[in-house]
Amino acid sequence: MANGRMPLDEVLMIIAIGAYVAGALALLVYFFSRSEWLRHLAIPLAIAGCVAQFGQLLARYEITHIWPLLNLYGSLSLFAAVAVLIFIIFAFRYDLWFAGGFVLGLAALFLAYAITWNEGTMPAVPSLQSYWAKIHVPLVVSSYAAFMVSFVISVLFLVKYYFERSLAGQSVMPASGAAAAASGNSGAQWLNTMPSLAQLDVLIYRIVAVGLPLLTLGIITGAMWAHESWGHYWQWDPKETAALFSWIVYAIYMHLHTRNAWRGMRTAWVSVIGFLSIMFCYFGVNLWISGLHSYKV
């Protein structure tokens, strides 16, 4: 800036990252120690970071009069904001704070990466000047955000699953995590402060149930927008195809989840694969593959 002052949106962005990093650290320690005061410290930080981020998006719009959705800087910022928002809602409802360190940590990482893509003010190219941008982008980005939260819970599920299995393998007597915990194994005691595997599995399902309808709507509105801009609903552009691939993975998740034998460890893996495919769709396609959607500048 000419007058040397930082624009409001960048100030808010820094506040958000700061709040996320502090909140993530507190919750990571909480994840291992379960000291309640850390949780009480982190909750306002997470909320403050999230509010600062939505403030940042609004400030950006006020300053540029362009919806901050159409480049990686804007969309990553929305992605992190929605991921934290979804996490906060689920955390209050299902006491999910133990996982917050990872969610806030990832959000901070994505934001830091977003800043490297801040190119300043840019008007949108013609095909992006559409009201569909304001519908399609938030839907898709929110679905990615939900999948990020379900990914974190899936990874925690798998950690707990394999840890419990190794405990069961180690000793002959305590056949389960609970039994091992009762016998004084500190790792097992700590594992037991997490929800049970069955509860984690239900949580993953509930968050995927937010993400999949959003992704479905996102793909549909994307097709409608493509129809208006390019004259085709579907052109098998790499972005479209990667989104469809991710959708297929989550449809598989949903179907396997109806089977008793598959619910749990296997569906958690499918959810992990789903998020990797979402990340490929988000970054891989934008950055590595050129196509109609590669509007990275």
Binding site: N118, E119, G120, T121, M122, P123, V125, P126, V297
Partner: peptide, 13 residues
């Protein structure tokens, strides 16, 4: 448009 990474010619219409 002058961006941080140099001049970009942005189509508008």
């Amino acid at each position: 448009i002058i961006t941080k990474s140099g001049m970009v010619y942005q189509p508008i219409d």
